[in-house]
């Protein structure tokens, strides 16, 4: 409980320091006051799942995940750019259904956002453990094969830091 509030306070204060980019005393004091008020007021809204990143092993995997994600994002963009610039419009769109093993809401959100920013896929809806994904070039409409194609490459990383 206190740990959650402290984590949010430090996060807000860090963003404040980066945003004002000074270390003058009045600015820092104003930042402490504003972050403290926000952390206390919004404590009931945040569910505190982010605090699992305080574990160093999980933080390590979260940092490893960033370059992996950027690599897939670059590939995705070149792919979409090719499809847009090609005069024949080689697209074969459709909405497929995939299954995820992730339990926590934050993990599902991270997975859905990663899928949206990467190769030709866009999360349309989440119902329980199924994700509905719009795919610009459908390779298979079978649930298992689509899961293997879309979800697995992110899930094996996300499961290590958000479970």
């Amino acid at each position: 409980m206190m740990k959650k509030m402290l984590f949010h306070f430090l996060m807000l204060f860090g963003v404040w320091l980066l945003f004002t980019w000074t270390l003058e005393i009045p600015d820092v004091i104003a930042g402490v006051i504003v972050s403290l008020i926000l952390a206390v007021l919004l404590n009931s809204i945040f569910d505190g799942e982010v605090t699992s990143l305080l574990n160093p092993v999980k933080l390590f995997w979260a940092i490893i995940y960033i370059p992996v994600f950027f690599y897939h994002m670059m590939v995705a963009n070149l792919d979409v750019a090719y499809r847009v610039l090609n005069p024949g419009l080689p697209i074969k769109p459709g909405i497929v259904k995939v299954k995820t093993k992730l339990k926590s809401d934050l993990g599902k959100t991270t997975l859905a956002n990663s899928i949206t920013l990467t190769p030709g896929t866009l999360t349309v809806d989440i119902k329980g453990e199924y994700l509905y994904i719009h795919w610009i070039n459908v390779l298979s409409d079978n649930v298992e094969e689509a899961t293997k194609e879309i979800v697995d490459k992110f899930e094996k990383y996300i499961v290590r830091f958000y479970g």
Partner: peptide, 10 residues
């Protein structure tokens, strides 16, 4: 969906 779409599971 566009008429050339393959499947709409949703």
């Amino acid at each position: 969906l566009w008429e050339g779409s393959v499947v709409d599971k949703l």
